[in-house]
Design a protein around this nucleic acid. Structure first.
Lengths: 232, 232
DNA sequence: GTCTATAAAGTGATAGAC
DNA sequence: GTCTATCACTTTATAGAC
């Protein structure tokens, strides 16, 4: 399902991908010019068009170089999880871990700094769906579909529609966690403690597990949420 | 604390703000030129510099025109909540509602389409903290501080650091909910049901309440999350 | 494959007429 | 306040030499 598209291991094409990735992460996709990229990659300005055809195509390739291994690791982790729990539903925490951890673990294989890596991922996910490159959209669709089935099995009493939305909220928290760690410190005068990513990840998994599970058990006697009018 | 800065109700300055807001929402902050804005506002190209001094300053003003009423409504709702529960901690659901609902309710006062309004808010929050206009950063800091205190009162057993991170995850889900409703439908072949915002909001509040509360009560016998090694 | 040179269009900002 | 004309750059993309 997920084709393995190969990427150059060296040469000017590789240097262009590296440079593009770094600059896109730092400044955002719109704010980087072909000249910025070729300057950092130490090639001539024509190289981008020669190797990729256009700036847009290079942008798509840089995204794909990330997302392909992330997608593959997600699916592999989920499969190995299902094998381990053969037939039975896997624990919710472990499914969420399989979805989130690859975004973190792929960082080690990158030559970008950790901070930049997360920014790049954040920028990819912050794109509107309709201007993601088609192959990336296809991958995300497949990942969502596979994980939805796993979640549905683990939470048989939650409706399909509820589950989709909860997974959506989870995705938002996940992206925010990766991309705005620095914002958190800035906006709270450094009281977030700057923990390791492993600690943050386990905090997130607890949060998301509780959120996904909410409403599963027989309706707790919660004080029936607001929704009412305020005297504002 | 939050100064009330006035914005023009008519005239070319107002038209420029309207046009900028619409285009920034549609295409993103980097992708809109002064000429795009003046064309839509039906002014000459010099008008932006005459009225605002620079493109950047106009961008900041457009953001502020949103965020000021949102911030004011958030603080007002929280205050009225605390008055209502005089002394006692307000229910978690109601605090979250006070934080999230203003982002939705301000849509009615806007002349943008609902879809565009949410996109604009998403773009503001997707900015890196260090390139938000200073007054906006100040407002966010104040809001976070006020709501953190309310959350801490409602969840006295959760550590300050845990709470900060859970609030951070909540913020991510909130932004994602507002800005990527269309993506959800696109990536799930429309099985999210396109519910009204009111329904989505109450789904989100349930999710976030559960996530924030997680771990409050005496450590549930959860199967101790993953964190372990995988055979991948 | 790599490069320079350049075309063609777009950019933010401003001077100066009205 | 509004406008046109224009400056001084930067942009993507490409032609054509090596």
């Amino acid at each position: 399902m997920i084709r393995g598209a190969t990427f150059p291991e060296s040469g000017s094409k590789r240097r262009l991908l590296d440079a593009a990735e770094k600059l896109f992460a730092e400044k955002g996709f719109e704010a980087v010019s072909v000249r910025d990229i070729t300057a950092l990659a130490k090639t001539n300005v024509a190289a981008v068009n020669y190797h990729f055809g256009s700036r847009e195509a290079l942008l798509g390739m840089a995204m794909m170089r990330y997302m392909i291994p992330v997608t593959q690791e997600r699916l592999a982790r989920l499969e190995s999880l299902e094998k381990k729990w053969s037939g039975k539903a896997a624990p919710l925490e472990e499914i969420i871990d399989a979805l989130v951890r690859p975004l973190v673990s792929q960082v080690k294989k990158s030559e970008l700094s950790e901070r930049l890596f997360y920014k790049l991922i954040g920028r990819i996910f912050a794109q509107q769906a309709d201007d993601l490159p088609a192959p990336i959209e296809e991958q995300l669709r497949h990942v969502i579909d596979r994980f939805m089935r796993a979640f549905a099995k683990a939470l048989p009493t939650v409706s399909h529609e509820d589950l989709i939305w909860r997974m959506h909220f989870l995705a938002g928290g996940m992206i925010h966690m990766l991309t705005h760690q620095d914002m958190l410190n800035r906006l709270t005068s450094g009281s977030s403690g700057e923990p390791s990513m492993e600690v943050t990840l386990s905090r997130f998994i607890r949060f998301a597990t509780a959120g996904l599970r909410e409403g599963t058990s027989i309706e707790k006697p919660t004080k029936k949420g607001p929704q009412a009018t305020f005297d504002f």
